[in-house]
Amino acid sequence: MSINWIGLYTLTKREVNRTFRVAIQTLVTPWITALLYIFIFGEVVGSRIDLIAGVPYIQFVLPGILMMNVIMGSFIASSNALYFKRFLHDIEEILVAPLSYMEMIIGFVAAAVIRSLVIGLGIYVIALFFGGASIINFWLFVFYVVSVSAIFALLGLIVGLWAKGFEQLNVWNTFAITPLAFLGGVFYSIEMLPENAQIVALWNPFFYFIDGVRYSMIGIQEASALVGFVIILGLIVLLGALVWYLFKIGWRLRE
């Protein structure tokens, strides 16, 4: 059976519409959070900080703030979508439809990536008002935003399947994503860390995600681009295969 393009498009569109149906929660909240970060760290604190890695502080932190919100937006989009569909049983509508497991996964991931792109675009527009926005390599910027949000959409699907309650659904954001993003160099250059901490930072994949998007926006790169590409593409393949397998066996999806 060939690809069910209409089915795939419909699933994606439905999830995107769900995002816009609750836009205050899904889009306005991360924009306001980013606005506060940009204003406080970029404008208020940043105006008292010398150049960092050769650029004003606001320009340095903006890519990190943007990527942090892209990551969270994508993760929340897919994990909540799948969890609530399981919780309310309307996942059955999809399970009985002639959609392949891969089409189901792509539909959820595409919707999460679109949500992240809208969040990212909004943050970029906000940053324009503070004079901190720039993109020196547009396609590389799109690559980092899309690929990293795809990684977190896939992770979100795993959590959406795994979670048995709201607490389990939200715990990852608090105890994993936020700390790793903060420690991945959102607000500082790796050079500012003690030598041992720099080595630890290199083992944090968030460092490569933030560093990559920072390079695409302001041309400053502290990590190996090749290592970053390998980590990103490797995670997409690995997580994609795992999610496909979980959908195939119906883990916590089918009775």
């Binding site: 069910n4 089915g7 419909t10 049983h89 509508e93 002639p98």
Partner: peptide
């Protein structure tokens, strides 16, 4: 199905339209 399994907030015509879409119409 015996138990309702439709998106609580979905409006009637859209629910039908989406499901028809899943089936490739």
């Amino acid at each position: 199905p015996q138990e309702f399994n439709i998106d609580f907030f979905g409006v009637t015509h859209k629910v039908l339209d989406y499901v028809a879409g899943y089936y490739g119409l």
